[in-house]
Design a protein around this nucleic acid. Structure first.
Lengths: 193, 193
DNA sequence: TATTGTTTAGACCGATTGGTCAATACATTG
DNA sequence: CAATGTATTGACCAATCGGTCTAAACAATA
């Protein structure tokens, strides 16, 4: 019977994710993916099928390991207002910690809209919907508990919070410094003050 | 003496701008730039020097023809609150009108941060500063005239408005529909309500 | 009309792109 | 130990990348 793989597929996928995350699909070359994963060309094609399927796998991994993990952790706090504040503190910390300024893989992919197929667009759209859903649910629960004013519309505020999240992640990639990012985060928190 | 050019340099630059605007620097190919401008390969290199200088020229043209033109027009209104509202109505209209979903050339270039040189980054950073400055000045003047509440901080609200502008332009490229974009714009207007 | 200096035209270049493939290595099964 | 079937390897592929360069086209000047 067969022969087991000689490399850690999930570890290789993690490395590939980093490459796509920082360069985007178009600017990431197979040469770099091969170098960074340490997996031979043929083996990479054998294991993942090609650049596009590898990108999808990497994006799904990001969505699972980062986005879902963070939202689950925050919802588990069972403290809506604090969950939202922690969310912004968290993405700002991530932004400042990352010397490569990769931003968020999902939002980066939104910026590349048009170059991607329906499957990729759906993964991204779903991720955004779930972040927005997290905001909306948090606001609703906060209102039910009397922690958040009842005269704000959960749905539209959730959309605004998602918008500010995107802005922090995109601006954090380049021109904006820590103070400016924190200003945006503070404005976000003020929306549900 | 010499021989005058046979093609309209500014018209060619306009076409090149459209290509870079929709594809970004990396994904735009010289082949497409040649096809869309209608200018022969050698002539294009002779006139602009290469892909990178052509990109810079295109970005500068966008900054001058679109960003500066819009801000000047709005400041000329001499009605700060209306200027800000018109700004958001304008970018939403632009977003919905553009069947190619190109978004904003400046913000698109922010998303490509890291792949660009200092000159490009400076053009973008300056454009963003000026948009934010437009918001801040508008708020300050509005406050001086009693049109806008005095208890809001012009500087931080200006940053928030810029952030929401970016979000509209990026989300408008792909996953978000008109209603969602208008929700963000309404939240922006509410910030200075 | 001959000379001059620039523009145009597109063939051509080496480098890089994503992708393929036949030979080889290998652990498992019989 | 031989047979089996998958994993690995790196040479190889056509296509495309951005860029160069020489020969021809051309209008202005002399």
């Amino acid at each position: 019977m067969p022969w087991e793989k000689s490399f850690d597929e999930d570890l290789a996928l993690e490395k590939a994710m980093q490459v796509f995350w920082s360069r985007g699909f178009g600017s990431a070359s197979m040469a770099e993916l091969i170098a960074k994963t340490g997996v031979n060309r043929g083996s990479l094609y054998n294991a993942f099928g090609g650049k596009q399927p590898l990108f999808v796998r990497a994006l799904l991994k990001y969505d699972r390991d980062r986005r879902k993990a963070l939202l689950s952790e925050l919802e588990a706090l069972d403290d809506p207002r604090r969950a939202i504040c922690n969310f912004f503190d968290n993405i700002i910390a991530n932004t400042l910690d990352d010397a490569d300024h990769k931003g968020c893989f999902l939002f980066n992919t939104v910026s590349e809209s048009g170059t991607h197929d329906a499957q990729v667009n759906e993964i991204v759209a779903n991720g955004l919907r779930e972040i927005e859903g997290f905001f909306r649910r948090s606001i609703e629960v906060g209102q039910a508990r009397g922690d958040i004013r009842k005269d704000i519309d959960p749905s539209s505020k959730a959309t605004a919070l998602l918008a500010l999240t995107l802005a922090i992640r995109v601006l954090g990639r380049g021109p904006y410094n820590e103070a400016a990012l924190r200003t945006i985060a503070d404005e976000a928190k003020n929306l549900i003050a």
